[in-house]
């Protein structure tokens, strides 16, 4: 893994813990920074976003990302598994075509297109996010399952493992690191797209940013941006940790 050189584990622990501390501090402590924002932006009557509590917004944001990611994992994982089974192999080309095509669609466009179909609100956002998260999950599930060495599959079959046992005891555990990487990609993209989802009526951390942009209130924008950036960094660091654990468990 490119990146941290000296004492990687310490750096990672620092990143996750540090990020978590910063995130919690920002979310809980933002109201107390009101005087700071008042001084920085003296011309604003409302230097602090107060229409919704930041805690509520953060939780709603995480809920949207979590629900859409879960749906994507179940559906995408299922599709990836199906397409690597003998009976599903015929559909693999189709799945790969759809995934490749879908990868080029910008997330914001998918989000916007959900509105003519479903109207405004959290539902189109949920569907759009789930659809967009499907792609990396499916691709990585297929790649991970493909990467299980053929001799391992051969000896598993030859020893008498049934298809279900092979899938759950051998293939999925060995494909787990790659699948996790796909989930990680999907979730991180979704954290960003969920912020933009405020434009279609979902209440997330993007709301202060959008309201701020519409009303030229830079303080609002910064408040929303800081928290959602911290959230993304923390979630990414969390996945990093998880990947490290998984690597140690599957290799050692």
């Amino acid at each position: 893994m490119t990146g941290a050189g000296m004492a990687p584990r310490d750096f990672l622990t620092d990143r996750l813990m540090l990020g978590l501390v910063v995130l919690v501090a920002l979310v809980l402590g933002m109201p107390s920074l009101k005087p700071l924002f008042a001084t920085l932006f003296p011309r604003l009557d409302r230097p602090l976003y107060e229409a919704e509590s930041f805690v509520r917004l953060t939780l709603d944001h995480m809920a949207l990302v979590g629900a859409s990611s879960l749906a994507a994992i179940l559906l995408g994982g299922g599709a990836g598994i199906a397409v690597t089974r003998p009976w599903g192999r015929e559909f693999r080309g189709l799945l790969e075509t759809v995934a490749t095509m879908g990868q080029t669609f910008p997330p914001v466009a998918v989000l916007a297109l959900a509105v003519p179909v479903m109207g405004f609100g959290p539902e189109p956002a949920l569907i759009a996010l789930a659809l967009y998260a499907l792609l990396p999950v499916v691709e990585n599930t297929v790649a991970g399952l493909d990467g299980v060495p053929a001799p391992v599959l051969d000896s598993a079959r030859g020893l008498g493992m049934g298809p279900a046992e092979m899938l759950f005891r051998v293939e999925l555990p060995l494909a787990a690191p790659v699948i996790l990487a796909g989930i990680r990609t999907a979730v991180i993209i979704n954290v960003g797209t969920a912020a933009i989802a405020s434009t279609v009526g979902a209440k997330t951390l993007g709301l202060p940013i959008i309201v701020g942009l519409n009303g030229s209130n830079q303080a609002y924008v910064i408040q929303g941006a800081l928290i959602v950036a911290a959230l993304a960094v923390v979630i990414d660091a969390g996945f990093d940790r998880l990947a490290g654990w998984l690597n140690r468990w599957s290799q050692r």
């Binding site: 960003g192 940013i209 924008v221 910064i222 929303g224």
Partner: peptide, 20 residues
């Protein structure tokens, strides 16, 4: 590591943080 962190930050947040 720096570029990875940048990539993680949601685009709308980065746009917003650059504004001020």
């Amino acid at each position: 590591p720096v570029l990875n962190v940048v990539q993680t930050v949601p685009s709308i947040a980065l746009f917003g943080l650059l504004m001020a």
